[in-house]
Simulated assay, not measured.
Amino acid sequence: MFRIICVTNRKLCAGDFFARLAEICEGGADYVILREKDLNAEEYAKLAESALAVCGKRLVLHGPSALPLLRRVPRVHLPLSVFENSPEARERAELLGVSVHSPEEAKRAESLGADYVTAGHIFDTSCKSGVPGRGRGFLRETAASVRIPVYAIGGISAENAAAVREAGAAGACVMSGLMSCQDARAELEALRRALA
């Protein structure tokens, strides 16, 4: 099954952040990665507790601030460098994803025990303004380099979701498309229709 994963950025959110998370979960997103890098550990923990009440088992924590919270939420997504420095996270997490930017990094994450990797950014996106996307060839090469699922990230929309699946992605991560749209349920429906 091709997974649709929301990656949060509350600063892009149209309206109430938690109401948006509820829409995204009700709309059928497989996971919600709580990626709020500007918060300190205490602020992140508080936000994570509120997000957990909305998202339940769909919630995946992100980054080093997530590590102390793994007993409460045993699903985490880490930069490769953080995982390399905190390998004990593998034993404490039920689900562990890693961000990678090359096939070599994907292989390294897999060797350390990652359950999946996100590879990107694939297409040009306002979240990485001025930095060109790595493209479908990069995605194809990364997906072919590992046995674990590779989820595409960066500029994914209903218009190109089928193309990333054809390039070998097992799913797609969407940030701005789900955070800033007027109707998250409609956005998710459009993504699913494009993949039907």
Rank of each mutant, 00 (worst) to 15 (best):
R90D: 04
R90F: 07
R90G: 04
R90L: 09
E91M: 14
E91R: 14
R92V: 13
R92A: 12
A93Q: 02
E94I: 09
E94F: 04
L95I: 14
L95P: 08
L95W: 10
L95N: 05
L96E: 05
L96F: 03
L96Q: 02
G97H: 12
G97Q: 12
G97I: 04
V98F: 00
V98L: 01
V98P: 00
V98M: 00
S99W: 00
V100H: 02
H101I: 07
H101M: 08
H101G: 10
S102A: 14
S102N: 09
S102M: 13
S102G: 13
S102Q: 09
P103W: 06
P103L: 09
E104P: 10
E105R: 10
A106H: 02
K107F: 04
K107R: 15
K107N: 05
K107G: 07
K107Q: 15
K107C: 09
A109P: 03
E110F: 02
E110N: 07
E110C: 06
E110L: 02
E110W: 08
E110H: 10
L112N: 06
L112G: 01
L112Q: 07
L112C: 07
L112A: 06
G113I: 08
G113T: 04
D115N: 13
Y116F: 15
Y116C: 14
Y116N: 13
V117S: 01
V117I: 08
V117A: 01
T118I: 06
T118S: 07
A119T: 05
G120T: 08
G120N: 07
G120K: 04
G120W: 07
G120S: 06
H121V: 12
H121A: 13
I122M: 04
I122K: 01
I122S: 02
I122H: 02
F123K: 06
F123I: 07
F123Q: 09
F123W: 12
D124S: 12
D124V: 05
T125E: 08
T125I: 05
T125M: 13
T125F: 07
S126M: 11
C127G: 08
C127A: 15
C127T: 15
C127R: 12
K128L: 12
S129N: 10
S129A: 15
S129Q: 14
G130F: 10
G130P: 05
G130D: 03
V131E: 15
V131N: 12
V131C: 12
V131I: 15
